[in-house]
Amino acid sequence: MRLGFSPFNAELGYEEAFRLAARLGMDLEVAYDLHEALPLPDPRALRATGEALGVGFTLHLPFVEMNPASLIPAVRQLSEDRLKRALEFGEALGAKVGVLHTGQVPVRHPMALDLAREALEKTLAALLPLPFPIALENLALAEEDLIRGPEELQALLDRFPQYGFCLDVGHALVELGPRGPFLYLEALSPRLLHLHLHDNHGRKDDHLPVGAGALPWEKLAPHLQGFAGTAALEVGGGMEGVGRSRERLLRLLAP
């Protein structure tokens, strides 16, 4: 497993994040939303710095004020356009994988659900062919989240074999309790490309350092050993939170 971390969750600027990643032998997960909102380095500048320091990248595709499953055609189209720009950004960055949220629906009415699923599939189809691997992330933190549970996500991935799966262990804990990550792995491990690793107490998406919440890491670790893909720590706590989480994971994953 190639381990990275999210500077956004750790509340680190790129200068600090690059230093930490180079010292620990980690990658960075870039939050594309920040590059839309703030004057930040362009992807080629980030890539050059990463190549000089031995730091690679994964990319979190936009999710702020974005809904690829919107019932409103203009909103869905805007989401598609933003995602296409993010894919161009990720290709220039040399991203190993990108992570995509699957959108929301305002009410769980049968007609609204059908229209939202149709909209989401239009968006996913419009992004093909993918310039680099893209993983759909389990979400289901709110009633509005469209795709819920391993079965729905598996069905979507069966219709779109070009995409892979990102297991967010913290989201799975909030949605389904301590068995959540295992249920997602049981259904979708053959499609697993990327991991989001952080902790919480099972009530909300706290993004705590590894071991600071209720996730059963000791039971989960054997399922992660031998995983050859990428992973990102989405933890708060600054440099200390990243470093402590990394050390805890390395101990858990040691043969």
Rank of each mutant, 00 (worst) to 15 (best):
G4R: 03
F5I: 14
F5S: 08
S6T: 15
A10R: 12
E11F: 01
G13K: 10
Y14H: 09
A17F: 07
A22N: 10
R23C: 01
R23H: 01
L24H: 07
D27R: 10
L28H: 03
L28R: 10
L28D: 02
E29D: 04
E29I: 05
V30F: 00
Y32K: 12
H35A: 01
A37Q: 04
P41V: 09
P41Q: 01
P43R: 12
R44E: 15
L46D: 02
T49C: 12
T49S: 13
E51P: 08
E51V: 01
A52G: 05
L53H: 09
G54P: 00
F57H: 07
H60T: 14
H60K: 02
L61W: 04
L61A: 11
L61Y: 00
P68N: 00
P68T: 06
I72L: 15
A74G: 01
V75F: 02
L78M: 13
S79Q: 03
S79F: 07
L83R: 08
R85S: 01
G90V: 11
G90C: 13
A92V: 13
L93N: 05
A95F: 11
V97L: 14
G98E: 02
V99Q: 05
T102E: 10
Q104Y: 04
Q104P: 01
V105L: 06
V107R: 12
V107H: 06
R108Y: 04
H109Q: 14
H109M: 13
A112G: 07
A116H: 03
A116D: 00
R117T: 02
E118I: 03
E121C: 09
K122E: 13
K122W: 07
L124I: 03
L127Q: 06
L128F: 02
P129A: 08
L130T: 08
A135P: 05
L136S: 01
L136N: 00
E137G: 10
N138K: 00
N138C: 04
L139V: 13
L139R: 13
A142N: 13
E143I: 08
E144G: 09
D145I: 00
L146T: 05
R148D: 12
R148Y: 10
E152I: 09
A155C: 07
L156H: 09
L157N: 00
P161G: 04
P161S: 02
Q162T: 05
Y163P: 03
G164P: 08
V169N: 11
G177Y: 14
G180N: 14
G180C: 12
F182W: 10
Y184D: 13
L188V: 00
S189F: 10
P190F: 11
R191Q: 12
R191K: 14
L195H: 09
H196N: 12
D199T: 06
K204L: 14
D205N: 03
D206N: 05
L208M: 06
L208A: 05
V210L: 15
G213Y: 07
L215F: 00
W217Y: 10
E218F: 11
E218L: 07
A221H: 13
L224T: 04
G226A: 05
F227E: 12
A232L: 06
L233K: 06
G238W: 03
M239F: 00
M239D: 13
M239N: 08
G241C: 10
G241T: 12
R246I: 02
R251E: 15
L252K: 06
L253T: 08
